[in-house]
Design a binder for these strands. Sequence first.
DNA 1: AACCAATCCAACCGCCAACAT
DNA 2: AATGTTGGCGGTTGGATTGGT
Length: 190
Amino acid sequence: MKKNAISSSQDVEVRKGPWTMEEDLILINYISNHGEGVWNTLARSAGLKRTGKSCRLRWLNYLRPDVRRGNITTDEQLLIMELHAKWGNRWSKIAKHLPGRTDNEIKNYWRTRIQKHIKQTETFNGQKSLGHTNQATTSSTQTCNAINPMQTYPPPYENLQNFSSPFPTETNENMWSMEELWSIHLLSSD
DNA sequence: AACCAATCCAACCGCCAACAT
DNA sequence: AATGTTGGCGGTTGGATTGGT
């Protein structure tokens, strides 16, 4: 098969980094007219100087109308814990059980909040029972990813009920909201 | 007010499987 | 069967923000 011309140096440069509002609108507009699919083609046809991958990620994690961001509920927290214990780092699989949540958000949530909390609990327990430290502290964070997660986290899960819901009330003041984007899109598509 | 450290999260990268040619 | 392309996934990073001193 012929090599895809898009990667050769004389062709369109590829934009990276944060998405602009214009790019978002182009993507939303294009997908609502043509639907998703074949992301590389979509990126080119829409006139976006982005890779297909980048478009896909932006759409799935941020622009999709049904995506929910922030304010993860206690129920969701517990479900994440439960499913992670069952499946490990299968974020996309876990995300399928949390409607509107993306694998990326769950992954970030896990790493920044839950894993930290577990680590703290472990350290605390470790200090309480010095002498039984073995490899626990050194390997625990990594082994969370491994075969049997149930063994690697002690059962501090119930404590999660107590840990203060970590989310700020609303996020991304510096970014245009989904409502803004979609209302601009709807106005302009009339 | 200014600085520094910690935290958060959007977006990238690399790998792999599935599919197409 | 071999090779190329694409999409999906998990891991990682860089910049922005927040909190502490």
